[in-house]
Amino acid sequence: MIAILDYGLGNLGSISNMLKVIGEKSKITSDKNIIKTADGIILPGVGAFDAGMSRLDETGLTEIIKAEAQDGVPILGICLGMQLLGRCSEEGSLSGLSLIPFECKRFRFNDNALKIPHMGWDTVDFKKQHPILQGLAGQQRYYFVHSYHAVCDESADVLMTCDYGYEFAAAVVKDNVIGMQFHPEKSHDFGLAIFSNFVKICREYGNRGGGM
């Protein structure tokens, strides 16, 4: 079972629909006891950084996520959920979860022809091998909608890049924590492949005795 964290922000329905297609059970929840039994955690999110972070704090999820990350539970942050995995963001003043060392910065261009937010389908480059990318052949494209993007301290934490005016981190990873700026749940078969791999990662973790 995968826990989709509910803190009042984000597209929970689409993610649980996609997991259903894959055949994985999921629960949309903010209940600590349920989250503790999950084989994996998805942190969705749409909206502003501080709004997201303060909702995580208010619901007590901040501590739970940090503890679960420490225990090695696979965690996938999506869109704002990815941004919250970092240290901070130019969009707000609150501290993030600090699970991956990065900061979020707003897109800045010399070229005024580029609109902000970066909205639409875009292609990515894979920067390293990782089980979440297993079997993904050919050019992958995903749906993006964001005005801020991660800037990693260590280039080794960058999983995918995308080019919009300049190259930026489209996905990040550190140990068991993965973040994706785009919306796999809105990216047709391209996104389905990502979720299938995440489910595999979670099941392996569960089979090893995690999430009990």
């Binding site: 009042g8 984000g10 597209n11 929970l12 329905g13 689409s14 629909n17 996609m18 297609v21 749409v46 749906y143 909608v145 919306h183 749940e185 809105k186 990216s187 047709h188 996104g191 389905l192």
Partner: peptide, 30 residues
């Protein structure tokens, strides 16, 4: 509709309150 659509979705018509917007975003519309 949203449960059949694994693509970006928008919806409109009759939206007047923040609560309505909240509900629409929660059921699968970005």
């Amino acid at each position: 509709i949203a449960s059949e659509a694994f693509m970006p979705l928008s919806c409109g018509g009759g939206i007047r309150t923040l609560d309505q917007i909240h509900e629409l975003l929660a059921i699968g519309y970005e």
